[in-house]
Design a protein around this nucleic acid. Structure first.
Lengths: 384, 384
DNA sequence: GGGTCTTTTGTTAACGTGCACATCTCTCAG
DNA sequence: CTGAGAGATGTGCACGTTAACAAAAGACCC
């Protein structure tokens, strides 16, 4: 029988008969039972060499079916799972993609993670997720951590602000993709949208509806903790107001990033006291806008009759509340998927020096929380 | 001067003068400029051995200040970041903690991730997050993936259902912690709460408020995609109803896990048609409950006057809507932190064979979305 | 001034895997 | 029956790091 012959041959290491045993190298006993099995344990059990085991796992067709079955049985009996760290040490491919987000507790950012995973699933990549809690210092710390894992691509929520962070990213010698913004000085690739333009778009939308007393609502910068993308939206919003000769006095900054429902609730308390009364509100995030709407309901302020409001981000809850929330939509899941596709392209191509800048769609979703000022019909454009 | 002497001595490899150069081993040229620097590059630049560089990074006190400074300068000049994969190959410590969640787009699960990170921050661990989209098959696939990274502990959203998954976890020979449930047959450690009891608690609460026509609202199992913890809550809820001699006919199952706002909206459309009219509703998740409440508002169904409703999970939005949502609270962030602490304990102790089962607090938050039936005063307990 | 101890630094051999290459086995043509 | 070629399998080393051990250089003591 073939098998017996092969087995014996393998066990007696026929190729090394002339070589004396190496001095310092003990034959190493079979793995202790409490240790995870290695490819060597599998090879011994199956009576083949380590290389054959390796082949069974990565190109099974190059191994004789009988041998393959024997090896597979050994793998399964031992519960062997190859150690990717050891493998990648040799292949220089870790299979890690690093993703740096401000926070996980934000449906849009988790949507990015899901989208990215979707796109990467076809290949054999694992996501290495870190989050910064909106702090640049933490970003740098996390980045150093991530680089120690040798990711094959790095996705950061842009723009990167620290010099040292940018330096590390450049030095990593792997594709870097900034997402969720269009940085003025990109490090490498970009899949994002202009938060500044989003802010301007929101302002233009409200101005065209005929409002003149318009508020912007955002978090306050607190030391190192800054929502840079939110800041950009507010900056664009205020710029557009000014360009139309309007006041930015109604802007309210409150609390630390990230904003959520309670932010809107608190800000409503502040803003609704103002005289003359504010007519329209743009919140830096839907979550804040929703909190604002809820507080208005409690105070008997009718939306949109007494006050119009719009948010940003098209969070699911905005579609469900009464009235539904006008907002600016960005498909974050698609953004993540697109990012994943680009990574796959960049990693498959030989030497792609083409820098990709993808500007993702952004659109106003008109819902019932904004109503035009009577007599305006929502089309009063640049009424000189 | 001391430094010059040392430097020269180091460069000429004074300890190996008698040994001839090894045959097959080329001295290896300095790393190509486009390659990430290794510890060897640092050692050459600093004029010391690799080991000294390694020491500077992990126990700096054992190196002479002058040498240390020289090495640190080389590290910084080269932008050297050690490769943890290579290090862990030798130390057997990867610094990975694996976390398997059903989804990231659920604030409570992301809170677990944040809590876990909080607790692990003091040590040098990185979280390796995977999610299953509520599929057992995907759980098994992801688990195999995770194990290939050799995590030092594995956190899974319990209970684990597949035989093969459980087998892999046991074979991993690292602490396994099931969270967010109290499995009847735990694999190892547990930090969770009884979803079954949560369901019973909810039912008891509504029964004591005097309701008799009570609905449970959940997702429908769809093939492999099952929200096991939600199922447990519904099971407990219905068991408690039956124990009080009540009907479970009002239970509505709809859509695929995970449920969200639109789930509640859709289910409200179904449930509000029922005759005789339902009096109280328990939704498997706050998100569904919120959607339900919003749909009631649109239909003119007053809460709690016409209908009482309670949810589960104490999501932030439940506190903000009108009326605020009665719910069952579990502190998921604390759950994550507790899990992290236990991991640190387990990994620091020599041989801790003690299995930890932590039953996390769970409490009903009484808010305005549930009102007692007139004449009940909310205290009709087991009215025999 | 010679031994001994302490401090500092260097050398070697793994850790688990995969590639390049070497070697054996089998088939088949001539 | 032999040699070439194809197919199957094995060996050795490298990947980047660190623990254990070794060695050198001072410090210190009598």
């Amino acid at each position: 029988m073939k098998r017996a012959t092969k087995k014996k041959a393998a066990r007696t290491s026929k190729f090394a008969t002339l070589r004396p045993p190496r001095p310092g190298r003990s034959p190493r006993p079979a793995a202790a039972s409490n240790q995870r099995p290695t490819i060597r344990d599998v090879s011994v059990l199956a009576g083949v060499s380590r290389m054959t085991v390796s082949r069974v796992m990565r190109k099974p067709d190059s191994v004789l079916p009988a041998t393959r079955d024997r090896v597979n049985k050994a793998i399964s009996d031992l519960g062997y799972v190859p150690d990717r760290a050891a493998g990648s040490l040799h292949t220089r491919r870790t299979g890690f993609i690093a993703l740096m987000l401000p926070t996980l507790t934000n449906a849009n950012f988790s949507a990015v993670a899901h989208g990215l995973t979707d796109a990467l699933r076809v290949a054999d990549y694992d996501l290495l997720i870190a989050y910064t809690d909106y702090s640049n210092a933490e970003e740098e710390r996390q980045l150093r951590n991530l680089l120690a894992r040798r990711p094959e691509a790095i996705v950061v929520t842009g723009p990167v602000h620290r010099r040292e962070s940018a330096r590390m990213l450049l030095g990593a010698d792997v594709p870097v993709i900034e997402i969720a913004d269009l940085p003025s000085r990109p490090i490498d690739h970009v899949v994002g949208f202009s938060n500044y333009q989003a802010g301007r778009t929101a302002a233009r939308y409200l101005i065209e509806k005929g409002f003149t007393r318009i508020a912007a609502v955002a978090s306050a910068n607190e030391g190192d903790v800054i929502d840079h993308r939110g800041e950009e939206r507010i900056r664009g919003f205020e710029d557009e107001l000014r360009l139309s000769g309007m006041s930015t006095d109604y802007t309210v900054r409150h609390g630390k990033a990230p904003v959520s429902y309670s932010h809107g609730t608190a800000v409503a308390g502040i803003l609704l006291e103002r005289k003359p009364a504010v007519e329209a509100v743009f919140a830096v995030s839907d979550l804040s806008a929703v909190g604002f709407v809820m507080e208005c309901a409690r105070r008997g302020v009718r939306i949109p009759e007494d006050l119009s409001i719009m948010g940003f981000g098209d969070f699911e809850i905005g579609r469900e509340i009464n009235p539904p929330l006008t907002t600016i939509h960005v498909d974050f899941r698609a953004l993540g998927q697109r990012t994943g596709q680009i990574i796959l392209e960049l990693l498959s191509e030989e030497k792609s020096s083409v820098t990709r800048i993808v500007d993702v769609q952004l659109k106003v979703l008109e819902r019932a929380s904004v109503a035009a000022v009577p007599g305006t019909a929502g089309t009063r454009r640049a009424a000189t």
